[in-house]
Simulated scan of single mutants.
Amino acid sequence: MKRVDAAMLAVLAAEANLAPSVHNTQPARWALDEEGRVLLAADLSRHLSVGDPTSRDMGLSCGAALEGMAMALAARGIGVTIDDLWTRNLLDWRPGYRLAARLQLTGEDAVRPALSEWTARRFTWRARFSPTSPEQIKRLEHWAVQAVDVRLAYGRKDLAFVASLNDRSSLATMRERAFRDELVRWMRLSPRHPAYSTDGLNLAALQMGRLEGALAGHLLASPLFDIADRLGLGQALVAELEKTMTAAACLLFHRPENESPIVSGQAFYRFWLSFTRFGFAGWPMAVLADLPSAAQALRERFALPPGHRLINVLRVGPAPSTVPKYRLPAGDLVLDGKPA
């Protein structure tokens, strides 16, 4: 049977960590147990207690990293069988971590997944998109029609509906001071921030200049937002409608409502890599899935299948440039597999 040692695990973990995670919190941690199996755990210090009270987004983030790990192993000819442990809520493996999955390395040679070549090219673009060619739209439409977990919203009427709903939903969420405080804790609005280049949402990721970032941080982390909102300026502060309307389309990603977040997260990473192939970047509008009223409005307009829940909505389109991925060092992603 093929095995992975600690040095190789660090390399694999760095590749797996190219996967998307909520607020770029990067909660996935890796270890080897005494039988040579790869363990995936969620670092609970990276849980968003306000924005993600049920830990579902953390599970989705770990699931995406798990898919990244499976692809990294397959690229080296190593297959795996996966034991999803998320729903067992295993918190006693070691303090501060939730055991999420166990990977048994198989003796069978694995074939490198076609999507794995796109992991380095996937990125989030939080600004206006470039114009889309008819050929790109055609390829996107053909793929979306074939996908069992995607609904395509495009054309000005559908885009305007999603864009307007996103702005209203964002304002409702940002009116919660606790949510804003938590968001600001994960924003890296100055290059002097000690975690600027490793995690969270920095100026480059947010497509902000230094002055804009400083103003945003001051506004969000103080009562000034509430004052501006009372003056009728709240919607203008969070509005993204004009940027959203430059997207080629919005993609509604849905999965069975009782599916483990780990499995949904694996599928989400494959979903994002799938449209990356067409030269598209993505920009999540997670609030549309998190806010029940918004999710229901989208369910009705775009006829989501019965028994499925909306996981996320991404506006997609060509980006004029790439944005670097800011990630934790590989050594921070690997744990000693022995329980404390």
Score class of each variant (00 low, 15 high):
residue 176 E to M: 13
residue 228 A to F: 06
residue 27 P to K: 10
residue 194 P to T: 04
residue 89 N to C: 14
residue 335 L to P: 00
residue 231 L to S: 01
residue 288 L to C: 07
residue 335 L to A: 00
residue 155 G to H: 08
residue 35 E to R: 10
residue 298 L to F: 05
residue 114 A to I: 08
residue 33 D to G: 05
residue 128 R to T: 05
residue 203 L to A: 02
residue 149 D to K: 03
residue 206 L to G: 00
residue 271 F to R: 14
residue 27 P to E: 07
residue 202 N to S: 07
residue 300 E to M: 10
residue 83 D to W: 14
residue 57 D to L: 04
residue 205 A to Y: 13
residue 87 T to E: 08
residue 130 S to A: 07
residue 304 L to P: 03
residue 84 D to P: 02
residue 22 V to S: 08
residue 31 A to V: 08
residue 190 S to E: 02
residue 237 L to V: 09
residue 162 V to S: 07
residue 48 L to N: 01
residue 164 S to C: 08
residue 147 A to R: 11
residue 28 A to R: 11
residue 25 T to R: 15
residue 282 G to N: 15
residue 297 A to F: 09
residue 277 R to C: 12
residue 93 W to K: 04
residue 104 Q to V: 14
residue 93 W to F: 12
residue 54 T to L: 12
residue 76 R to D: 13
residue 117 E to L: 12
residue 32 L to M: 03
residue 305 P to M: 01
residue 329 P to Q: 03
residue 219 L to Q: 03
residue 114 A to E: 12
residue 66 L to T: 05
residue 23 H to L: 08
residue 340 A to K: 04
residue 43 D to L: 10
residue 94 R to M: 09
residue 243 K to E: 04
residue 262 I to K: 06
residue 5 D to E: 05
residue 174 M to P: 01
residue 158 D to R: 11
residue 115 L to P: 02
residue 89 N to M: 13
residue 259 E to F: 15
residue 269 Y to L: 14
residue 116 S to L: 03
residue 208 M to A: 08
residue 72 A to E: 10
residue 30 W to C: 05
residue 249 A to Q: 06
residue 150 V to W: 13
residue 225 F to C: 00
residue 225 F to M: 00
residue 202 N to G: 04
residue 157 K to T: 14
residue 196 Y to G: 01
residue 273 L to A: 13
residue 152 L to Y: 01
residue 42 A to R: 03
residue 300 E to I: 07
residue 195 A to V: 05
residue 44 L to G: 05
residue 234 G to N: 02
residue 93 W to P: 02
residue 117 E to V: 14
residue 296 Q to G: 14
residue 228 A to V: 00
residue 198 T to A: 06
